[in-house]
Nucleic acid binder design. Structure first.
Length: 448
DNA sequence: TCTGGGGTCCTAGGACCC
DNA sequence: TCTGGGGTCCTAGGACCC
């Protein structure tokens, strides 16, 4: 039996822990650059504000001028999420953290009644010790548990916020009320195709012949149907599996055309990928860089491109990854265009322990890895980004804008147990090794 | 003024090989 | 005159999720 715990309006609920005066008010948390709403309180949902609504359109809704808009504080949310996951882990046989606000887990009992009691206690415990409202659904498969958790969340008469879908009759009743696009795995495109065939609710979908389901979608849609019929066939990447790709990208605060400034962002993103790799104790061999114009600006010529480079060996060194990222960037950058977004993705990731020793670069790898350990230790102790590669110490023209941050940083540091940072100077690490000679095509990385 | 970021999986089609 | 068949690998694009 699987359970799905889902935090209600997660980011908004996190903000309310620290600012209870937000309770009962329409609140949204905004994405990077204060671009659009990524979490909405029930009061904001009631005003009709959709997920992803651009911030500037919010006040166009009736009552929208009363909506409180907050910039996101993702480090804080991650910390709160970890606390919730720990509490779930105390009762679960096996937990799969699916996203920052959701986790699937296996239940210890066969008896639905005992499971229900256990989960109701868990919801209360999370309320008490963390302060975030959580809804939990449980059922024989993950896709059914997802439907159950929707019901638990939406049914206002359900006071313990737990819903089990275990009996045949109960499940088929729920199917009749589940719109086809509310089924996990059926998104915008597939629901259009299904509606065209007069499939409006989950029960109609479960009756379609398998061959037709396969034709409409692919094997994934067949799996979704099987899951609804009670066959457990979804595998979830649990936290202990290394990521297949790691990406860092940002929309800039405004359009940029200067190569130097974009390169600065690219190096920052490359470093962030390297840091994540080291946190997962993994190494990557491919580096992909992309740049993009602003597709909302019809007055500017639009350009987008990407370049993938295979490094000679796997690496988690920010110097190494930054160098190849810059090289890739140099090959796609074009003068006279305005850029709004860029990103770095590393792939072909394996655990560091599987790494083949590179005979030619062995000594350099050892040097890098000692340096990296030292940098990680400093950043862990004094706060992220205290030690950075040289090209990233500019003012950061590309930096996203956050206008609704309020008194964020004080609370955040206190909450996360970090020490104040004022006494620590930012340290510069030179990007280019003096013994490297193959960088004639990356003019930028030699400037420091 | 102003529109996020980070993932996964599957499939079709091209390149290449024998 | 006339242009195989089967396999693998890679990549781009499309779909989904939060």
């Amino acid at each position: 039996m699987y359970a799905l715990a889902d935090c209600n309006n997660f980011f908004v609920s996190c903000e309310r822990i620290f600012n209870p005066s937000l309770n009962g008010l329409p609140v949204v948390v905004l994405s990077n650059n204060d671009g659009c709403a990524i979490s909405r309180s029930n009061e904001a949902k009631a005003l009709g504000i959709p997920m992803g609504c651009p911030a500037f359109k919010i006040k166009e809704y009736p009552g929208g001028d009363k909506v409180i808009m907050l910039s996101g504080r993702h480090v804080l949310y991650r910390d709160i999420s970890n606390r919730i996951m720990r509490l779930i882990g105390e009762v679960a046989l096996h937990i799969e953290v699916y996203s920052v606000d959701e986790a699937f887990f296996k239940l210890p009992y066969d008896d639905p009644e005992r499971n229900h009691q256990l989960l109701a206690q868990l919801v209360k415990k999370i309320d008490k010790f963390v302060g975030v409202p959580v809804s939990i659904g449980f059922a024989p498969t993950r896709t059914l548990a997802k439907i159950a958790s929707h019901i638990a969340k939406k049914d206002t008469g359900n006071h313990d916020r737990v819903k089990g879908l275990t009996g045949k009759k109960e499940i088929s009743e729920a199917f009749k009320r589940t719109a086809i696009d509310d089924v996990w795995g059926i998104g915008r495109r597939l629901s259009v195709k299904l509606l065209a065939r007069d499939v409006h609710f989950a029960d109609q979908f479960t009756r379609l012949p398998k061959s037709l389901v396969q034709r409409i979608g692919n094997i994934n849609l067949v799996r979704t149907q099987l899951e609804l019929l009670g066959h457990d066939c979804m595998s979830i990447n649990s936290v202990d599996i290394v990521h297949k790709t790691i990406m860092t990208s940002r929309t800039f605060g405004h359009v940029i055309s200067k190569k130097r400034e974009i390169a600065d962002a690219i190096v920052t993103f490359a470093q962030s990928c390297a840091t994540q790799l080291r946190q997962e104790d993994a190494v990557a061999q491919q580096v992909m860089v992309y740049v993009r114009g602003d597709h909302f600006r019809k007055d500017l010529p639009y350009y987008t491109n990407s370049c993938t480079i295979r490094m000679p060996s796997h690496s988690a060194s920010p110097m190494e990854i930054s160098r190849y990222a810059l090289s890739a960037f140099n090959s796609i950058y074009r003068d006279n265009f305005y850029y709004r977004k860029a990103g770095v993705m590393v792939s072909d990731i394996i655990p560091a322990s599987h790494q083949q020793l590179d005979l030619f670069n062995g000594e350099k790898n050892v040097k890098h890895s000692k340096l990296m350990s030292a940098i990680d230790a400093i950043n862990n102790r004094y706060g992220t980004k205290k030690v950075m590669l040289a090209p990233t110490i500019s003012k950061g023209e590309w930096a996203p804008q956050h206008r609704h941050m309020g008194q964020a940083s004080k609370t955040l540091r206190f909450y996360s147990g970090m020490s104040p940072l004022s006494s620590v100077e930012r340290t510069v690490v030179k990007l280019t090794d003096s013994d490297e000679s193959h960088s004639d095509d990356n003019q930028i990385d030699n400037q420091d």
